[in-house]
Design a protein around this nucleic acid. Sequence first.
DNA 1: GCACTCACG
DNA 2: ACGTACGTGAGTGCC
Length: 888
Amino acid sequence: MTKQLLLIDGNSVAFRAFFALHSQLDKFTNQNGLHTTAIYGFNLMLDHILKIVKPDAALVAFDAGKTTFRTAMFADYKSGRAKTPPELSEQMPYLKQLVAARGIKSYELANYEADDIIGTLAQQASQSDYKTTIVTGDRDLTQLATEQVTVSVTHKGVTEVEHYTPAHVLEKFGLTPAQIVDMKGLMGDTSDNYPGVTKVGEKTAIKLLKEYDSIENLYDHIDDLKQSKMKDHLIEDHDLAMMSKKLARINQSAPLEVELSELTYLGDQTDELIKFYQQMNFRSFLTKMNVEQTELSLEAPVDKPIDYTVLTAANLDLVKQFDQPVSFYLEMPAANYHVSDFAGFVIGNNDQWFVSRDVDLLKQPALAQVLASTKISKNVFNAKAMIVGLHRLGVQLQNVNFDLLLVSYLLNTNDNSDDLGLVAREHGYEDVQEDEIVYGKGAKLAIPADDSVLFTHLAKKARTIDLLSSQLFDELDQNEQTPLYTDIELPLTNVLAQMEIMGIKVDVDRLSAMGSKLVERLSEIEQTIYQEAGQEFNINSTKQLGEILFEQMKLPVIKKTKTGYSTAVDVLEKLRDQAPIVDNILQYRQIAKLQSTYIEGLLKVVHSSDQKIHTRYLQTLTQTGRLSSVDPNLQNIPIRLEEGRKIRQAFVPSHPDWEIFSSDYSQIELRVLAHITGDKNLQEAFLEDQDIHASTARRIFKLGPNDEIDRNLRRQAKAVNFGIVYGISDYGLSQNIGITRKQAKAFIDTYFEEYPGVKKYIDTVVKQAKKMGYVETLTHRRRYLPDINTKNFNQRSFAERTAMNTPIQGSAADIIKIAMIGMQTALKQQNLQAKMLLQIHDELVFEAPKEEIPVLEKLVPSVMDSAVKLDVPLKVESAHGATWYDAK
DNA sequence: GCACTCACG
DNA sequence: ACGTACGTGAGTGCC
């Protein structure tokens, strides 16, 4: 029978695991301050792969030392590589302990790398009756793939792996595994520091090898190549290419001192492993082994049993005893809490938990008074959902102290799952199951019939909230984020809840009438398109559309996507002149979008009870601190094109003789930029209330104060301003305004000369991000950037752009949040009937009686522009009218 | 469930 | 040499 062999590239996987968890570096330490990220990640990978492979034999290979037979060939091999971080080095000895405790042999060999050990063993295994799986973070090992040997390369994290068989290598590179070394020979390897051929990268290497198979054959036919720079480089670098290929080739006959027969996989060495996990403080792995964690159990109950009391109308007075913070949780299994069923609730503290399925009990004074009490504070998970859910029952929730979801998100914007069990796990608490497991999902979503299943789940949720509060409050404090939570996000939760509950009225008839017209026009255009194409097809299918345009009608292919031809707007616009069908397709797309997303989509979510739409704002989702809006999204209702803008005519006030009133910040992000960077020239433009894009145009195009700025110059300057905010690149700018990359680069260089403060800021913020691993907004909102130091150019560049953009976008989000809280307070204080309904990132939308409009025209801008004090003024513009459309 | 396209700031 | 603008949500097609 075929046996299974598992070979793991220890250094490379540890390295991957270390950087995958880099943002969590400080959270993963044991009692002695040892960092444990690489060990933890490595073990996750082991768990994952052992399940898939079920090996009979296994080995983890490690690199032995600095010098190998490769350094003898090429002195610079792997030189110039950044030193292994000490936080990783310190973990390596323990990693070997882990491997041993899991019943796997480790091995290293002087003068050879882990690759060579693996290559040699894989070779031997193929001659015996073995199937081999190699796990590594290094794609170079794919050269070892054969029908008997699969190379599993770890992806983003460490548990996601991509399995390379010869077929997969072919699909991925268009090459055989044997050609990988030729590819590396031509392209070189920056991380191993061997050169390859000048100016030849992966793409070129693959192209050449597809034609010539190998480096040797390529050079045999070098005279056949057309005269080109590339040919010159190839000839010039012949020796380098040959050497690089040798360096890339994995040695498959290293003088190993181990044999396959010694690699028997023993399985977990339970006692040793438990001791090791305890030493590493790996609670989740201990849980998996069903180990009682005595000394940790007070803090971290793991499957710890829980007692609860079932509440009934008869014993309801039991809840009157509460005189200190209580945890409360109202269970709504569907995501949309405006309409979800109620499964039950839990309330309690100090290991006294009261549960019930009967949410009507919440209306009883004994309970309702606790929830509304301003004396007894409440600890919850997702306060906004609780407020809205309770409101549906006619019950008020006041005095929320701790919101686990919200605090978790502020501590790390990635901890934004709306599942309590998952969020708790991020903080080391393992005993709450995922909702999906308890309630199922999709069509299978159901409330468990078994009382003990439901009640245990609920009680554990309440207990977890209770137990996590002080720890997470401490962490907030350490991050200087307590004011952000207390003064901004927590009060905002309540404001958002009120906006969602209020909803916005929709003129359903109007929307339907617009829909009918669109449907008519759609079928007309459809017929025209079919005629022009000479056949009927599904216009919505990009695949079919691509075939018609680019194969049958032979239009030039401008851009391709991963899967075929691109038919996106920018492509079609370039083809406009070539065939009338293109214009019609653009028309069709525009109208189809309006019809399906905005007419049908919105009609579907109008509540029949009040003819209103009640969106949900997600307060704990975005990486920058912005809100998002779902079910439906009311933050992307059309405005740019008149056709679509008319949709806004269907958004109307909820009372006769009321109007829609809207105020928006003008250029808030650029003003924030001027403030944060301290750039005097940019600040001056805002202090003098100049047209900012015109002012930028004047500077970057070196125009005099009286020169006219034509529309095109202003448009280009505007694009440059956007580019700066987004974290500029010459390529991105050139694409956006249709100029060459060189011109774009010149614009950017001039911009930085004119605005030196901006340049300085960008350099500083990126440096800061590289050092600290995160960036911050005005209010200490934090975003971790785990990729900021990665070797991968794309990932790193992206992280760098994010480092520049997040403080700007995020601070603008902070400002409008503060303004919203101020507005809610002001409306109440002044006894106004006006209601705040929507937030669209830099805009607030209200409805109000006509007579209050003059009040709002003063009040709203004054609250908005005084939300924070910046070094430049904030500017607010307002409008009002009978519908949202008319508020322009 | 992913890819593509397109709506907004 | 690399291959990009920042942040979102929703509908449709296709596997």
